[in-house]
């Protein structure tokens, strides 16, 4: 009953935090990545091939962008359960505009204009959703899980209501061609992921907004007392998260050539899994885009490697979950070990 163990991470957050804050905190993740790479290279003949790399670059962007949309609110101590709903709705809107105003065969410049219009509308929708969510989180004080649960339900509801649950397709040829292009041999959608990741990374690490975001994640009141407009920062957090969803929507259209409220629903929890695996503190305050990207690479590598073994995707997801548990456990023990050692000395 009365154990005198160190108290569990009740107040100050998880022991993860200690690990993630250490310099070289990604060392474990990188070695896991390299280890897996070597393992698969050894076990699967021809694993280290251009084909594998290509499938890697085509499969990663959607999950990667959605995870980026999740990491921003996670850093601020919140959560955005509406990212998939936002992405789908933005994609639906863009496909609808393109399909209605520029049916296949519409010529050059007018198709170009329609595409621009669609992009603008999709972006605007995401910004609006983000501002609304952010305002609700910042100014009502309701827990972000509940707010975004509500907005998710609302957005999904509107999408399903308007489309009757059907998928929309019909993208202008120009758009499809651009989406499928591979400048310098790299798929455009992968370049998009890299660009957005760099942007989010820079924003989180090198701007007042990013610093405020992490500070709010650790202690919103102390941050407010330090003359930071925490309300505005929170609105910005959810707006940024939604804007990243806009890019995810582009990738969604490029990948499926259509849009539907049903696409990618199963990714929601995987994004949280990836973020935590990448060292993002689920209580907020700590995390890096680099860690997230390494974690995504690990997940994708596991999935491609197992795929080559002929392992079903279901088993892959199970292994992802198990990986998360193992990594978190390893981090917990890694954080506890030094303390124990010190006490014995």
């Amino acid at each position: 009953m009365a154990d005198a163990r160190p108290l569990p991470a009740a107040k100050q957050g998880s022991p993860l935090r200690l690990f993630a804050g250490l310099p070289g905190g990604h060392l474990g993740l990188v070695s896991l990545l390299v280890g897996l790479l070597l393992l698969f290279a050894f076990l699967v003949p021809g694993f280290l091939s251009v084909a594998t790399l290509n499938s890697f670059m085509y499969q990663l962007p959607l999950l990667g962008l959605l995870s980026l949309a999740m990491i921003v609110p996670l850093m601020s101590g919140g959560l955005n359960l509406a990212i998939i709903a936002t992405t789908s709705q933005s994609a639906l809107l863009m496909v609808w505009i393109m399909g209605t105003l520029a049916p296949p065969g519409t010529g050059g410049s007018s198709a170009f204009l329609v595409i621009l219009l669609a992009l603008a509308a999709g972006l605007l929708l995401c910004v609006l959703i983000g501002l609304l969510t952010g305002a609700l989180v910042a100014y009502t004080g309701v827990h972000p899980i509940l707010v975004t649960l509500g907005t998710k339900s609302l957005i999904d509801g509107v999408s399903i209501y308007l489309t009757r649950g059907m998928a929309l397709s019909g993208v202008p040829d120009a758009f499809a061609a651009a989406a499928a292009s591979t400048p310098l041999g790299v798929p455009l959608i992968f370049l998009l992921l890299v660009a957005v990741a760099v942007a989010v990374g820079v924003i989180l690490k090198h701007t007042p907004f990013g610093l405020a975001c992490a500070m709010i994640g650790s202690n919103p009141e102390a941050t407010r007392y330090s003359a930071v407009d925490t309300g505005r920062v929170l609105v910005g957090v959810y707006a940024l998260s939604s804007v990243v969803c806009f890019f995810a929507a582009l990738v969604m259209i490029a990948t499926f050539n259509s849009a539907s409220a049903d696409y990618a629903q199963s990714y929601l929890l995987v994004t949280i899994l990836a973020a935590v695996l990448g060292g993002v503190d689920p209580f907020g305050g700590f995390g890096t885009v680099t860690g997230l990207m390494i974690a995504l690479a690990i997940l994708q590598l596991l999935s491609s490697g197992l795929n080559q073994f002929g392992v079903s995707t279901y088993l892959t997801v199970a292994i992802w979950g198990a990986t998360l548990i193992l990594v978190v456990v390893a981090q917990t023990f890694a954080a506890r070990l030094p303390a124990r050692f010190r006490r014995r000395k």
């Binding site: 100050q12 610093l211 405020a212 500070m215 650790s218 202690n219 102390a222 941050t223 003359a227 930071v228």
Partner: peptide, 17 residues
């Protein structure tokens, strides 16, 4: 609880305001 953001670094706390 109001003066400092305890888990965060000294450097970040110093520049916050």
């Amino acid at each position: 609880s109001l003066g400092l953001v305890l888990p965060q670094s000294i450097g970040d706390n110093l520049v916050l305001a």
